[in-house]
Design a protein around this nucleic acid. Structure first.
Lengths: 183, 183
DNA sequence: GAAGTCATGTAAACGGTTACATGATTTT
DNA sequence: AAAATCATGTAACCGTTTACATGACTTC
């Protein structure tokens, strides 16, 4: 019964408090999204799998009001979560189309600067978004530490772009960039 | 005829020189892998799609020796590559299981330090790997700039882990980490 | 002669996204 | 009355990985 990291996103949030699938999605979109996204289909799918594995229970709420299933973590669920936390993290994956375009920029050197600038703006925007979350003060404890990572990392990336942009402008028609690519 | 970024990995490499699918895979594994991975199945699939779209041609080499198809970019292929380079990068995706574990560490605070240490070691290892590539001097031009990004970024991440590890050790049984998580 | 590398592909499975479908409650 | 939000799911599709299959040439 191997669980995917996405299952642990769901299980981890239920370790805080009972939630509906909708709740989980909205919390994901304001937190783990930046380093581990999850869609409704995934969340509802994982909820079913976790229920079938006995790691969570589902109580359907009062049928008079809005239909709502409150999911609760079980003791075996907490154990599974702690076991996962104690194992070494495996997955680290990045898909950065901006770096890809910069990597191949020798096919159109004029595009390099705008690619870097777009990447810079994107990271700066994310950093601002995360900063306003930090200012709101909702993320505490470890979530707050990870939020700080997100802010600093995006700032670093935006800074790198800024630095590289000036470096590129200073060596005009760039010596390095004119070379043939050979790997 | 929308192409995926992975198709442009193939097209981009063929803009340097003619290559076999095997060649492309080995270059990917020593370069774009760190920000855009691709498997054999994907590469051979994209080669077929690009050939059918007329963006590359395939000449089967001498049949006496080892079977080998040399793929060459066509003029429409170069145009498609330049058009893609000129558009804003879209995809930026991260899947970091280490951050996920840190995020949920309140369910097992004892695991936090080893999670961070594992993440630090992983990034330091990648940085060293990339540094030895840089020392070998194969990556020039824009590929070299992206390589520098990889080195600096992984160094930054490893440093953040190191800093956070000492921060966590200094406030013993961490004030922040003991709080209930609320997002 | 065995192991390694060069070389090309297919099939099945998996993880994830997007679109679709539905309907109640709440806010404007 | 309309729009937004809460709420739960399914189906189709897409991108990617892993396993499998095959074979020739090269190096030890």
């Amino acid at each position: 019964m191997e669980l995917s990291p996405t299952a642990y996103v769901v299980l981890g949030m239920l370790s805080w408090r009972p939630m509906s699938g909708y709740d989980i999605k909205s919390v994901v979109d304001r937190s783990t999204r930046f380093f581990w996204a999850a869609s409704y289909s995934q969340i509802y799918g994982e909820l079913r799998a976790l229920r079938e594995a006995g790691l969570i229970t589902a109580d359907d709420g009062p049928q008079g009001a809005r239909r709502r299933t409150a999911h609760r973590i079980t003791e075996p669920g907490r154990r599974a979560l702690r076991d996962w936390l104690a194992r070494e993290p495996e997955t680290f994956e990045l898909r950065d189309e901006g770096l890809l375009k910069l990597f191949f920029a020798s096919a159109d050197p004029a595009s390099a600067a705008s690619t870097i600038a777009a990447k810079r703006d994107r990271h700066a925007e994310v950093a601002e978004q995360l900063e306003s979350m930090a200012a709101a003060g909702t993320a505490s404890g470890y979530a707050g530490i990870v939020l700080a990572y997100g802010i600093e990392c995006n700032r670093w990336m935006a800074d790198w772009c800024e630095r590289t942009l000036t470096d590129l402008a200073e060596l005009p028609a760039s010596a390095g960039a004119r070379q043939r690519e050979t790997i």
